[in-house]
Design a protein around this nucleic acid. Sequence first.
DNA 1: TTATTTATTCTACATTTGTAGAACAAACTC
DNA 2: GAGTTTGTTCTACAAATGTAGAATAAATAA
Lengths: 123, 123
Amino acid sequence: MNLSATEEQLMNFIWEKGTAFMKDILETYPEPKPATTTIATLLKRLTDKGALGFKTYGNSREYFPLYSKSEYFSGKVNHLIKNFFNDSPSQFASFFTKETNLSKEQLESLKSIIEDQIKSKKL
Amino acid sequence: MNLSATEEQLMNFIWEKGTAFMKDILETYPEPKPATTTIATLLKRLTDKGALGFKTYGNSREYFPLYSKSEYFSGKVNHLIKNFFNDSPSQFASFFTKETNLSKEQLESLKSIIEDQIKSKKL
DNA sequence: TTATTTATTCTACATTTGTAGAACAAACTC
DNA sequence: GAGTTTGTTCTACAAATGTAGAATAAATAA
């Protein structure tokens, strides 16, 4: 469940797209594109560590995630809060809203998301 | 400005404490404690990469951070949002409030933090 | 059906990360 | 002042990471 920086980037593309072939992946990289074998290595490592599965079609494979982006980032954010924000989600939230320089509109929309969450807790 | 996992942990201690000597650092690690030289290596690497400074006292040094915890995590969170949450802080916030399982009280307190931020934007 | 393209595996190698021994010097203990 | 402790530098080494060549096999284009 732990990904390196380049693996994370590759996973993100597959998470967004749902499934992907080598071909699709290569397309997303800007020039100078990495060697095909570089991507192949990453895909193999991700498969070995249980992050990706695949379905074979002829000489190529359709890769798909074995866990979701939410599951992954949930772990990451929780780790962050636990280890660096005193195990306090509110402390983190407060830090976050200050540091990300949200516009008034974004803050308003965030406020209503939170109001919804509060409502759903009441049920 | 980029720290590895163990470096991050060490920095966090120094951020919390303000400044620290080797001695203080070693104390924080649970048994089995790492070798002194292990910590020394980390301190040297952090010094080399501009994360720590120090003041010499006899044979030892008082280390201090050259940038704050906020600065560091601000970078991290912004990177996270930019690369994995579609450059949308609200998207991230929404994800965050759902995934961290905040209590009603925490949500209420978060709401008031946001209301304060909204107010301060109005000025 | 032969040449070309595409995807995969295997091997390789430099860099970064995690961990620590050897050697040494300053400081503290008797 | 000799022995022990503490902190540093230098060296080392395994594992993880980023990157890719060589070889090969399947698919495709001419």
